[in-house]
């Protein structure tokens, strides 16, 4: 009796690596956005757009310190930017579109990465202890959701005036002052919580963006980490001055 050698294949039943994706399978093009790394790049870029927006938004808000007129003029200027070359509100609309796109993409990337993460760990640990403070883990996703909810409230309150005591037909400065009136202290409280959340989100997020884009390393981190903290702190302080000043009656 003889047995022949089966060339090129296992001669006996061999447990195949469970439908494991074989290495080097040609990937279809355009995988970049589908890849986990690509999604992170989307987060980094859209995050950067939003940080720039927040900085200018904060600067604008601080105009209220100079008086209601200054603030209203600023709000008006946003709408008449580059007139008469472009129609009324054109630039602002463009900025708004860019922001909406950024928010949507940022959230899409976050949600799909979170879903990926859940699939990557179907069985949870009985005991799990963070060794890196757990800061980024908890703050980023939980914070992101909190911020998203706040943005909806914030738009309804101060942009569309739906939940603002002064309603839509008022000047921006009136809406702001009315919105943060001492009687509505809880609005201010929500605002404070949200702004602090934004700060915490950015403290990690700004550095994380650099890391994702491949610009961070341990030498640069000595500057990048403090920079992220500084930007986050400036934003928190800058955003909190107007509402607190209004609530405590400094600005009327």
């Amino acid at each position: 009796m003889t047995a022949t050698i089966e060339r090129g294949a296992a001669t006996a039943p061999v447990a195949s690596p469970k439908a494991a994706p074989s290495a080097r399978t040609p990937k279809k093009s355009g995988r970049f956005l589908g890849s986990s790394n690509g999604k992170k790049v989307v987060m980094a870029v859209t995050g950067a757009v939003m940080v720039i927006f927040l900085l200018s938004h904060m600067a604008g808000n601080l105009k209220i310190v100079l008086g209601k007129d200054a603030f209203n003029e600023y709000a008006h200027a946003l709408r008449t930017m580059l007139e008469p070359y472009v129609p009324y509100r054109a630039m602002l609309t463009l900025v708004e579109i860019a922001l909406v796109v950024s928010v949507v993409l940022h959230m899409w990337a976050a949600i799909s990465l979170a879903r990926r993460a859940r699939q990557a760990r179907p069985v949870k640990y009985v005991a799990k202890k963070s060794q890196a403070n757990g800061y980024a883990t908890h703050i980023m996703r939980f914070g992101g959701i909190t911020i998203a909810l706040f943005v909806i409230w914030h738009l309804l309150d101060l942009t569309f005036g739906v939940v603002n005591p002064k309603g839509f037909d008022s000047t921006p400065a009136d809406r702001m002052v009315a919105g943060f009136d001492a009687s509505r202290w809880w609005v201010t409280l929500i605002y404070v919580v949200a702004v602090v959340m934004v700060g915490l989100h950015l403290r990690h997020g700004i550095w994380s963006g650099f890391q994702t884009l491949g610009w961070a390393n341990h030498t640069r981190n000595r500057a990048l980490r403090p920079l992220a903290g500084l930007v986050a702190a400036v934003l928190v302080v800058g955003f909190l001055i107007p509402p607190l000043a209004i609530t405590f009656g400094v600005i009327k």
Binding site: A3, I5, E6, A10, T11, A12, P13, V14, A15
Partner: peptide, 14 residues
């Protein structure tokens, strides 16, 4: 011996 399944396998060669 496949140490995971315990299967005894034969592999032939030159």
């Amino acid at each position: 011996r496949d140490m995971v399944t315990g299967e005894i396998e034969r592999h032939l060669a030159d």
